[in-house]
Write a protein that binds this DNA or RNA. Structure first.
Lengths: 142, 142
DNA sequence: ATATCTGCAAAGCATTTGCGTCACG
DNA sequence: CGTGACGCAAATGCTTTGCAGATAT
């Protein structure tokens, strides 16, 4: 019997029914520090439980997202990507050469965003900020 | 024979083969000042040419996007939305109550974005910034 | 016990594509 | 005329769902 993963503990605290599959998916996501899509979560979970179904991964990931345990992102590659939700908000900087994703937080931008929304009579309830870049000096090599 | 639409003129200048369908789609998009998805473009085009196929709309919209005539956006509603590309860059502020889309430009944010990318050794080649808001004072009414 | 979850396969959606026909240049 | 565009319907890729059996509490 393995230790309880971070996400499994959150599920328990929320009183969710914990099946073997949910435990496996919770573990996989707790141990991921990238932004896997459902297929990647499915493959990582399959290593632990080879009989798990991708439909269950879809259902569980949606469940976790609705419970604010995961955040869902769309980086424009056709599939949704997930990461564990944390209290420290951040945005994403995507290296389009390598596909790697860096996280950053800039309070100045956050403030400006709220200001812009307010100037149009709106209260900001969410935002999406993604930066796409290439390694410096890499674009002239082509 | 109707006048040549703004987008049709661009197509002609670029030496693209202008079919009746492309002319219709160019006209529809030139006259739109919102952010229609393919289905909406298809319906608007059908009014002018009822025999047009949605496959042609998909192909044409992609063609225009690749020719930098259109910009493609994803506002998270499951379908791609399009608008005529202009030289003045702007981002979007979406009213989640009404679904209406406001455009804005903030140079301060643009500068900060380049700075952030640079601080991670990347040159900014693109970005996506969308703000989602509700009318001020509207959220406590619920 | 029993409401909920899982696996499977089928269905849904937005989008793309193969193919025979048609039309712009 | 010939290359490329069109319409149709089938195919695709991601995601959801109906159903019958399995499972957590």
């Amino acid at each position: 019997m393995t230790a309880i993963s971070r996400i499994e503990q959150i599920c328990i605290d929320k009183g969710m029914k914990m099946t073997g599959q949910r435990r496996v998916i919770a573990r996989v996501l707790s141990e991921s520090d990238d932004h896997p899509n459902v297929d990647e979560v499915y493959h990582r979970a399959s290593v632990i439980d080879s009989k798990i179904s991708i439909a269950t991964v879809y259902r569980t990931v949606r469940l976790f997202e609705e419970a604010a345990i995961l955040e869902k992102h769309d980086f424009g590659d056709g599939s949704a990507r997930y990461e564990e939700a944390t209290d420290d908000h951040h945005d994403h900087l995507i290296n389009v050469r390598s596909g790697s994703v860096l996280e950053f937080h800039n309070e100045e931008i956050e403030v400006l965003q709220r200001k812009i929304a307010a100037s149009h009579g709106l209260k900001l309830v969410g935002h999406r900020l993604e930066l796409y870049g290439v390694p410096l000096g890499d674009d002239e090599k082509e």
